[in-house]
Structures are given as C-alpha cells and as structure tokens.
Design a protein around this nucleic acid. Sequence first.
DNA 1: TGTATCCATAAGGATATACTTATATAATGA
DNA 2: TCATTATATAAGTATATCCTTATGGATACA
Lengths: 114, 114
Amino acid sequence: MQTTSPDIDTAANILKLLGDKTRLGIVKIVSEQECCVCEFVDLFQMTQPAVSQHLRKLKDVGLVSESRRGQWIFYSLNKTYPFLDFVQKVIEQIPSQKFKLEELEAQGKRICCD
Amino acid sequence: MQTTSPDIDTAANILKLLGDKTRLGIVKIVSEQECCVCEFVDLFQMTQPAVSQHLRKLKDVGLVSESRRGQWIFYSLNKTYPFLDFVQKVIEQIPSQKFKLEELEAQGKRICCD
DNA sequence: TGTATCCATAAGGATATACTTATATAATGA
DNA sequence: TCATTATATAAGTATATCCTTATGGATACA
C-alpha cells in the first residue's frame, strides 16, 4: 500500500519524533511485533510514566495504535498512518530489535494473552 | 559506495539532527547542489548566525563539508560520512528543493564563483 | 591602509523536551 | 466489595534547543 510522500516540514516533524532513542526503539519493535507498555518498561529500563509519555506522542500523530486486551494495552504500528512508507524506509535501515523481545521471553517476562 | 549501517542509538542521533526543518532543508539542498551561507540566509529567511549554528551542527558530525572560495564558504554533502546511505535514504524521500535555488537565481541572488 | 562583505563564535534568553513523583482510571480476581 | 495490577495523566524540574544580539576574523578591493 502506497502512502503519501511528506513535504519537508512534515518530514522534519516526523524525524524529530523518531529522533529519540526510546521512541525509535518503540517504533522499530512495534513494526516487528505488537507489544504492551510493561514490556517496554522492562526493555528500556524506564519508569512506566516515561514510557507512557513517549507512546502518547507516537499515538497523537497516529503512528501507533493501541488495543486493550484485559489489563494490558498492546501497541502496534498504525497501518493507516498517512506517512507510513516514509517511516518504514527509515526504520528498515536500523537493526532488528527482535532479540530484545527474545531476551524478555527467556526471562519469562513476555506478556501473552491467549 | 556502501557505507555503514547505524545502530539504533546512532540512528536516533542522526534523526534528531535531521528533525529540524532548517537543517533538513540544508541537507536536502546540499545533496542536490553545493551552496554558501548567504544563500541559506536568503532561502530560509533567517539571520546569518542562526544559519551558521545549524551548519556547525551538521559539520560537527561530519555530514557536510565546507570549501572556501574567496569570501564565500560553500557547503556540500560529505561523501565520506560513515552513515551517508542512511541519510540518503531519508532525504531521497522528500521533495526536491531545487526550485528554491531557481527562485534565488531568478532574483539574481545566486552566488557563482567562476 | 581603510572599509565592506562573508562568516564564525560567544553570551544570553525564551521555549521545548524528557524525565521525576504523585495520583487517577480501568480491569482482574479473591 | 476490596486489593492488586496495568496504564494514563498531572505537575514540577533540570536540561536541551533554537533563536537573538554583539563581536571578531578572514577576504576583497579601492
């Protein structure tokens, strides 16, 4: 699916949003697998409010979307984000972060709702 | 020429640098044609020190390089920047800014050293 | 030599950013 | 109903960022 090409001001705003290592990590991770807040807290060794505030910025522009499952809220890339292609071409150039989720899994800290 | 793929922290720092509309504009423009400081001042309608400070940030990480010609200092993309591919894939997705230089040309404000 | 132009740098201030702690909301389960 | 867990939000703070004004250095030219 082809999305819109951003003008230069829009692109700068998107890059500023991605120009934080926590948010870039979140976006890369949810581009590979959906994930809930407490997992990010573990992955980034940050407080829960700090993570929530980064997620809010990503959600406010529509780059990620949330879906509640019981107590947990899972975040994923929003497939209808207007500039998704732009973001994808950026994040596909950085290394996969799947190993981080695998580390969580090995520690038995992965959240699973079945 | 293939350059290095950035790790996620490095990528975040690069994106933060590009996440400013003035710097992103500068990088896009010098990726298309070298340009001197006074032209950026005209293009962005900013003070000369403000432009110089953005250029310094870009120069400090090695993304742009300068070459003096008489009074003028011309800036261009540094072809030996280690993460040039990463930056190129970002900026090739935003619209060409050549029209801005053409507007300068039409106003007789383009600097030319022959 | 003096002056004008181009550019860099320093210092200061207003605002933005990213965290902290405290608290509120929502769902779960005893 | 009450306690627990997951998450969001509010308020405060330290620092970063981006501009401003002032000034200095380098080059060109009369």
